[in-house]
């Protein structure tokens, strides 16, 4: 077997070993490669920065543990930003059943900067029904969520007295891993109520979501862990997004190196065969 044929048939365990090593090393010894902030991520940051006092922001936790490592840092970064902004009201909601646990984890660990539960932010929890639930939420928040996640009647929460439907929402941000997610929000809330809409996505679903950006239905998006890292950089905070970026770079290098090796070997092998 020639060297080219060997390079064409590298054992998958060797591929796995290289990838494992190149992901682990930068996690253990971070390098801190410079990161350019994409216009899509910056758009969310700038929009929140410009929100006037009294604005109501809905953050929807539509992901599960499988995308936790990629999306939880996005949610943490956005929630940090919202908590820092004085006078902003935050509604946490979920259309994925595991979303409320993610939201509570953030509320437990985040600095609320003096914001009080019920007055400045509320956690409504999960409602089943996917797209229909989104539509019902947009039409009548109080009817869809008679009690919040912590079992308080929604009418007892001072903040919710004047917030009745999507017409009262200034900004909607969904941390969405799949369906229901961006298309459903665009159909049921952004379109009919003209609510400005942005999302945090797993990197793999960014290409399919781009048409919603270009059409103007979304004004910003965070793409995978990189989106989270960019947002953390804008906030000057060191979070899990920034920590993971070197590992992302190195893992991409490994994949590209193996693709390159395979193609050089493939072409050399074909040339040799032609002779």
């Amino acid at each position: 077997m020639s060297i080219w044929q060997r390079l064409l048939n590298i054992d998958r365990r060797i591929v796995y070993l290289f990838l494992f090593a190149f992901i682990s090393l930068p996690l253990l010894v971070p390098i801190g490669l410079p990161l350019t902030i994409s216009p899509e991520t910056r758009a969310i940051y700038d929009y929140i920065e410009k929100l006037p006092e009294g604005s109501v922001v809905v953050v929807s936790f539509d992901y599960s543990p499988s995308s936790y490592s990629e999306q939880h840092p996005q949610a943490v970064a956005v929630m940090n930003h919202l908590m820092r902004k004085p006078g902003i009201k935050i509604i946490l909601v979920a259309f994925w059943e595991q979303g409320p646990i993610m939201a509570e984890e953030i509320l437990r660990t985040i600095d609320t900067h003096g914001k009080e539960y019920g007055k400045d932010f509320v956690h409504l929890g999960y409602v089943a029904g996917g797209e229909t639930a989104m539509s019902a939420f947009a039409a009548d928040i109080h009817k869809t969520f008679p009690v919040d996640y912590r079992k308080n009647p929604i009418d007892s929460l001072p903040m919710m007295a004047d917030i009745r439907s999507a017409k009262d929402i200034s900004l909607l941000i969904s941390i969405a891993a799949g369906s229901p997610g961006v298309p459903e929000f665009a159909r049921q809330i952004q379109g009919p109520y003209k609510v400005p809409f942005a999302a945090g996505l797993v990197a793999i679903s960014v290409p399919i979501t781009m048409p919603y950006m270009q059409s103007g239905q979304m004004f910003g998006l965070m793409a995978g862990l990189r989106g989270a890292a960019e947002y953390e950089q804008l906030l000057n905070m060191k979070g899990k997004g920034s920590i993971g970026m070197d590992a992302i770079s190195f893992s991409h290098i490994v994949v590209l190196a193996f693709i390159l090796i395979a193609n050089v070997a493939y072409l050399a092998n074909r040339k040799g065969g032609a002779k």
Partner: peptide, 15 residues
Amino acid sequence: AFYITSAAYRAFRAR
């Protein structure tokens, strides 16, 4: 990530 790396190595060839 591991499966994708292995699959990319085997499938992405300039045929």
